[in-house]
Nucleic acid binder design. Sequence first.
DNA 1: ATGAAAGCGCTAACAT
DNA 2: ATGTTAGCGCTTTCAT
Lengths: 342, 342
Amino acid sequence: MAVTIQQIADLAGVSRGTVDRALNNRGRIRPEVAERIKGIAKELGYQPNMAAKALSTANHALQIGVIIQYAETPFMKAVLEGTEFAKEEVERFGGHVFVECIHGGDVKKLLKTMKDFREAGVKGIALVPTDDELLKKTINEFVEKDRISIITINSDLEDTKRLCFIGQDSYASGRVAGGLMGEIIPGDGKVMILSGSQENVATMERTRGFLDELEHHYSRIKVLEPRYAYDDDWVAGKLLKEQLEETPDLAGIYITAQGESGVCDTLKKYRLEKKIKVIAHDYEGENRENLKKGIINFILRQNSYVQGYESVMELFHTLCGNPTRQGEFWHTDIVIKTRCNL
Amino acid sequence: MAVTIQQIADLAGVSRGTVDRALNNRGRIRPEVAERIKGIAKELGYQPNMAAKALSTANHALQIGVIIQYAETPFMKAVLEGTEFAKEEVERFGGHVFVECIHGGDVKKLLKTMKDFREAGVKGIALVPTDDELLKKTINEFVEKDRISIITINSDLEDTKRLCFIGQDSYASGRVAGGLMGEIIPGDGKVMILSGSQENVATMERTRGFLDELEHHYSRIKVLEPRYAYDDDWVAGKLLKEQLEETPDLAGIYITAQGESGVCDTLKKYRLEKKIKVIAHDYEGENRENLKKGIINFILRQNSYVQGYESVMELFHTLCGNPTRQGEFWHTDIVIKTRCNL
DNA sequence: ATGAAAGCGCTAACAT
DNA sequence: ATGTTAGCGCTTTCAT
């Protein structure tokens, strides 16, 4: 049988309530007593019983909020599916999960939703952040003042007090893309990088990883100067056209950001769709079709569903007294998709 | 607030105990009353509270057993890690997880362990099965007579009453291998299939998927008659040698089963290790090294950790009243590993 | 066949 | 500052 607070109470010669206050730092207790109790608990290897904790507090403390920005994108829709599944599971334990979707990126609305959640008594929030100073401040305030745990999904805000980050390691995924490109491009083929913007940390990291991998292991391949399409299909198509005029013998394209459809359309127009190898990210929307047709050769997938699911489950565990399970960074798998494992 | 048995009891004009007997088919109740109660529960959309269920029965009903065969292989060691992590989580809910490892495949020992678990009051068992008639019979008996839920890990026993199967879709993984091979082999290269034995269902399925994919999408590639190495490194090396004598211009090798090290050693001996493309399964042990060195180009991974973890968690959910979450087949991701996403 | 009540481990409101 | 106690929702004995 596992150790219970009653046993600790007996050993310490105090009541259950006192043990509870000590172990959960609720105050209203003499510090030295608290220390002694914590000592005993540690000695006994006490682990709180999550079922009991969930049962006794379900209706107030087990409230979780989720805020998804850019909810209209296929990627975030998959995140949403994960959170919905997790919601069901948490609610089976008597908890409550509130999910709010934000169209596009809208920090003001995000902040407003956070505050609404706080009013509603939410004890943990998982959110898709944008790099914003006020958001960072608010997160710290929520964590420190209101003792609300916060998890960042998909992109991180490292210099905050957030509990952890769940998402992909962008640099690593760029390296994977580089390795694949190296394998499928024969000889000294020329490869183009089509990126988003230089402000976007994730795509810059991908680019860096891609370059590192090719440089170290496939130095025979010539990588051209990156071009930036600002996540726009039309711009992406145009940049590709320009590149093709300069470099008619282009062998491969690595797309770090949005704009894949523009690339594919242009390739089709030039009847190059099976000759030039394409590696992209994000296994949603049209990309899926283009992968199936063989225009895109590989897609590196972020396991978005897992990001949504685990962010909620991690908060659930935290609120039930289980410490962070994967540490500060929870990097989800880099899944390689080909036409055959759609 | 969610619906509770108390509310159902009030509505039905009976006691909580009666509702409990009705909803859990415990007998000792008038059938018509049971039906009526079930009707009310359904109408109200009653979902049992898992926390409460776990708390009230933790010490007798929340016992789970795990039996791992071939526990000495790197693959099963990863499965084991998953079960150990799940064990911790279940035990935080007050449950108990017993893990038994079997060296090699040993049906007698497996059956013995199952019976031991039953004696100990275990209510759910996750096991790595072997295709054996007596085992199938025993599983059905456990499920029907003892009401013990059983989950098969890694390989399935379809014609039994097991709750579900957690593992990989072998045919699909063979197709993925085919697609990758198609991408990295230029022109009309010749490809060899090195399989396990014709009795092994999983490897035969992989072979079938591989052939289908190449035939449909890369008909330019010539696939040679499969050879069988019976999971032996030495035999695999020898078969490769023979093949190389017949086919000096061999371009690729697909290894569906064990024996990868034998292949890699032979390739090195002939100084062909970077010229002939190799795709293998199982991302454990020496394969990892050979992938890193570039001798193996791709490894298709079964997410063994997930198999171990989810099999236990699925039983946990089942025992807490949550119905099977992924249906009868829970196919884990086919993860492609390259040197860059080790 | 059904009801009543104790208890699982923990929290929180109320006493002292 | 500490103790007491009533739940949380469900299961399980023990009565009836």
